[in-house]
Design a protein around this nucleic acid. Structure first.
Lengths: 195, 195, 195, 195
DNA sequence: CATGAATGAGTGTTCATTCAT
DNA sequence: GATGAATGAACACTCATTCAT
């Protein structure tokens, strides 16, 4: 629904870089490769960014920040008295669809980065984890979630599973709704057979 | 069953490389760095390996192969009629402790590698996933696991969560038993509050 | 005789460039740096100068030309029959104080330039050397200076020493009068002890 | 008189670099240019030196250290009671001929370096200046040199003039003996005409 | 007059790899 | 088996310069 087709150049560069990282890995994301994708020469990128690091960092932040904003909105968009299951479901739905959504490659970038670079976005990621932690804590407080589990373990464990999604969603051909449904159902009720 | 303490040189090289990758990242793992760790010069490594890639690939495979063997053994080591919950628990226990165990650095290597290299170990990893798939399928067949879930989604989702473990086990300070327990419990029974 | 405080832009640019060269060295003197100092963008400088070289060359020439003019004036300002020692003293005084004077940065530029660029100002520098040569030749002609020395050697040797002045005047803390005095005294009478 | 024509490669590289600096200036002394002169590719230089800086620094030190050693020897080689004029003459002679000597390009390098780099060899240069300072101080102590001059000014002034020598010795065509003679004579007795 | 944006040639440096010895 | 020495291709980055607007 955008009127202007042409994005600002900064955004185009970020897009190109994210694209390469997600499709070919961080090592393939050289300044020359990025430049080629936006029809430039490598040196020209430095007019728009101070360094390669600045590019990666911005992609990284833009990714989680968007995710943080979206999931937060999804939760707050529900009525005050919405049950835990519904809140969880909404959050998972948004998280997964953001990860799988086509043009949301910014969110996939993280998993392809060398550890040394990942560490840089730790703060923002911790903020995001806190969002989920609070969601679960509310569930426990209201008795809708089992208090038996240590949330400090449960939350990263659950998110960890969710984040692996893009890696295999492509090959399995599942929709984001299916994936979100599976995650919520197994998390809430487990998979033990009911006789 | 080796008599001497000294490992064959090939193994020493693999060890050194794995060490560097896990501790300093893939980018720091140059042939010179590896050579230095085994008291050689870079060029000499080529007498033992055809290329750097061969080294990394071997580390990679050795990691999952060991994991595959161990988990397989753990399952087969149980009595034929052992209940699903017990088989699952045993498998998870071994998987997690292998990932967290200190000297099992070979298994940590994967998370540090660039995309292009990761892709190379796909075949072996699929074989490993199949092991788990079969475990779950048995559970479904015996009615001990809920047939409602598509195993093609469930298995990678579950393993995905498990594999994220080393990333946060260090900061949370949880033991591998705690982690395995949490994973099995939530998977089987969910976290929904029982009123 | 300018009415306003604001120098013409060309002069401002030269000033900025000279400033950077003297304070941070020639390598730091990029078009961007110069532009920043005069509140412009690099490209805009090309409206005022054809190239970076033109800027540097102009600074260079302006430096020696000023020196040439000043020393020439100082000599011609003396009465026709002024003794050689006095003429020499006046010339040295002006030369040294120009080099050491705080706002005379244009004269310091030379010592920071790369060989290739230095070579370009040779002509102007030879003209300046000629000024000194003539001064000495007059001294010889009148018998006030020893005819034994080849002026083709003596003049550059003497000027060479004088030009090194700024390099150590800062650390020695000597005034330009002291320095000029020393130079004239040793040149005229030598340092051999008189018993 | 050397038996082996082939110098060690390190020395060859230093030679090449010094050559370029002296003939074309520091800016022209790129790793690629140096490499070309020793029939190598730029990257290969890094097998022998850690960085470009290391090369320059070594040239710099080698230059003054040799000079320091030679001049020191020349002075100490004279009989204990040699008069000041003779000692001075010997020192100047060695200094000048070292600067002008064909294969002594290492000593010319200094004058072509950007100030920032020059500063690095300050310590060694101060040591060298001290050598001269002592020589003059001895002369003053014995009454052979005029005590009226501040040696802290005189020594750098004199050396400064001497160092400018190579710049014009080529064009003037004077021999190093002539130059040294001129320097010693004017320094000792001045140029004032004797009536 | 000035700028935003780009270019092309070049910089120092790194690294997997090769190979004669 | 191992090394010293070299290579070639790449990398991130810089800078003088150009030019349409």
């Amino acid at each position: 629904m955008d009127t202007a087709k042409q994005k600002p150049i900064r955004a185009e560069i970020l897009d190109a870089a994210a694209d390469i990282i997600v499709r070919q890995g961080y090592d393939a994301c050289t300044m020359r490769a990025v430049a080629a994708l936006v029809d430039m020469k490598a040196g020209s990128l430095y007019y728009h960014f101070k360094s390669k690091d600045e590019i990666v960092e911005e992609i990284l932040n833009q990714g989680i920040e968007t995710l943080y904003a979206r999931v937060g909105e999804a939760i707050r968009g529900l009525p005050q008295e919405a049950p835990f299951a519904q809140r969880l479901s909404a959050a998972v739905q948004v998280h997964v669809s953001s990860l799988v959504g086509k043009d949301q490659k910014y969110m996939h970038v993280y998993e392809h980065l060398p550890l040394i670079i990942k560490r840089r976005s730790r703060k923002m990621r911790e903020k995001y984890a806190q969002l989920w932690h609070d969601l679960f804590a509310d569930g426990v407080a209201s008795g809708e979630a089992d208090a038996a589990h240590d949330l400090r373990l449960l939350v990263p464990y659950f998110l960890g599973g969710l984040n692996r999604v893009p890696e295999w969603s492509r090959t399995s051909g599942a929709s984001s709704e299916q994936i979100a449904g599976l995650a919520v159902a197994t998390l809430l009720d487990g998979i033990a057979g009911r006789r």
